[in-house]
Design a protein around this nucleic acid. Sequence first.
DNA 1: TATGCGATATTCT
DNA 2: GAATATCGCATAG
Length: 211
Amino acid sequence: MKARKNSGASNPPVVAGLRRLRRTELPADTVRLARYLIGKTLVHSTRGGVVVSGRIVETEAYPPGDPSGHAFRGKTASNGSLFLERGFAYVYFCYGSSFMMNVSSERPGIGAGVLIRALEPLHGIGLMRRRRGGAPLRDLARGPGRTAAAMAIDRRYDGLDLCGRHSLWLAAPTRRRGVLAVSPRIGITRAVDHPLRFYERGSRFVSRSSR
DNA sequence: TATGCGATATTCT
DNA sequence: GAATATCGCATAG
């Protein structure tokens, strides 16, 4: 029998309340998608039934033709997911230690995406903390590499449809979004002044304050 | 809190 | 061989 209320300590927290985003809800435009994703939820349900999720509080746009974008030099064996239609995962490995996830944007055949840079942990915080070596709550997903680690996202998820019925998906917000703030992007060497980083103002889970 | 630095592997030159 | 959309630790203030 099923508990009608969420009183059981071992029950996963109100995951049924999370509604999958449909692709038609995602703006096709890269910058608009980057803004749209702030406040949305990223969900990863494991086979064991544990659900890990977080509010997206920081993104960066890498629009078509951006010299700092991975698609800038054209399609290769590793960046193909950026050229899919919007809503697919592009996962790559960087600096010898970190995976990072983008959400593909624009139309099929156009290489662009939105980097997910930070989450505010919502569900499965115990599992996230284990995956992150016992880091404090604030640091569990503060930064793109930490986000991928906390969500157990690796190369296997490259090319996955985040709007499909898979274990990793995008969901509607759990509460209203705060004020959106804008700054230059982090860690790049070209087009460094473009205001293409978006974050929720005041969030303690954002990777860095703008300068 | 801010800054500096080394580790690390994949990709493209 | 070089570059890289980073992290964690160290140190100083």
